[in-house]
């Protein structure tokens, strides 16, 4: 990490949605989409958020941008608490944060010309004149690798990858510091994916952007991230630097995920961790560790207590009792030695 200045700090963030239970009048359950998440995002880094569908990774992104109201917890962006701010006061800070969307077909208004789409944020938040705005729009569209002619067209005249570039241009229009990319390449062909990812990396260098990159694709995350957080059922189970996570996954879920990536080289023996069953419903998440029903190493303790994120080494934090046990044993050994 070049510098360790915290841009965004999220602590104990919870986003619960009320759900009606059918046939049971009056009873309401809560869907715990984001359940007690804390993380730091440092300036200039890319934090990848990976998890299967339903793990709450998109909701996390949307809650940070306050598109979804958090139930509890704190969102601190550049030292400013955002969780309680409303409309105008919020917008001042939100201008520093933009989003790139998953669906390149839904994220551009089909009835608006590209020029207008990219110009809109500039018009809203700067006092540039019409010709200055036009200049800025041309500059942006060229930055993302499209030509000026694209400006006069409508969204349906572009391919998925081109539309995603337009979405990126719109996100960059008012010089944000943080970009939350919600599965920006999952709707694209593999060949286009790498182009868009490399564009994002180039832009990061040029504009000193910080990314929160949400994806379910482990190889995409590996390509773009500096650090990776693995989410399971609304919680972060492991957060680590990319290299240590991919080389030495600690949490059984992370291990299972990584062992599921197909390999080309069959001689290379790998530890395979089978997990069975389905992702439990976030409406009634299991007591204790959310993963204990599917975990091959589950202990009695895991069914009762919820493990918290603990630092295992200076690059890795993991929420699993397996490592707490080890730590304790080491502690007791060392204390015995001392005695």
């Amino acid at each position: 990490m070049p510098n360790k200045e915290v841009l965004l700090k999220v602590s104990n963030l919870k986003t619960y949605f009320p759900v009606k239970v059918p046939f049971r009048i009056g009873k309401r359950s809560v869907l715990k989409a984001v359940d007690d998440i804390s993380l730091n995002l440092y300036k200039g880094e890319t934090l990848g958020i990976v998890g299967e569908s339903g793990s709450g990774k998109s909701t996390l992104g949307r809650t940070i941008l306050k598109l979804v109201e958090p139930t509890d917890g704190e969102i601190i962006f550049e030292g400013q608490h955002l969780e309680k701010l409303k409309s105008k006061a919020l917008q001042v800070h939100r201008n520093q944060m933009q989003m790139i969307f998953q669906d390149p077909f839904g994220s551009l208004n089909p009835r608006m010309r590209i020029e207008k789409i990219i110009e809109e944020p500039i018009k809203m938040h700067t006092t540039l004149t019409k010709s200055e705005r036009k200049k800025r729009v041309v500059e942006l569209i060229e930055k993302v690798g499209l030509s000026e002619e694209a400006l006069k067209k409508l969204p349906h005249e572009f391919s998925g990858g081109q539309r995603q570039r337009i979405g990126i241009a719109r996100a960059l229009a008012i010089n944000p510091k943080l970009i939350i990319a919600d599965e920006p390449v999952s709707a694209l062909d593999v060949s286009i994916q790498s182009q868009v990812l490399n564009l994002l990396l180039d832009l990061q260098d040029e504009f000193e952007l910080t990314y929160l990159f949400i994806s379910h694709d482990l190889s995409v995350i590996k390509h773009i991230s500096d650090r990776v957080a693995v989410m399971y059922l609304g919680r972060i189970v492991e957060i680590a630097t990319k290299d240590s996570l991919y080389a030495n996954p600690l949490h059984p879920y992370t291990k299972a995920l990584l062992s599921a990536i197909p390999v080309v080289n069959f001689d290379q023996k790998r530890e395979e961790i089978p997990i069975t069953g389905e992702l439990p419903s976030p409406v009634d998440p299991p007591v204790g560790c959310a993963f204990h029903q599917r975990c091959p190493f589950a202990m009695e303790k895991c069914k009762q207590n919820r493990p918290l994120l603990k630092e295992v080494n200076d690059q890795q934090q993991v929420a699993c009792f397996l490592y707490e046990e080890k730590e304790k044993k080491e502690n007791t050994v060392s204390s015995m030695v001392q005695v």
């Binding site: 939100r94 933009q98 989003m99 208004n109 009835r111 809109e120 809203m124």
Partner: peptide, 25 residues
Amino acid sequence: AEYVTASKLIGVQSYKIMFKHILPN
């Protein structure tokens, strides 16, 4: 639709989203 979310994020006022963005569609 996500284009509406995108406009909200930029801070476009609700009446503009309603009549400039959604209505033409």
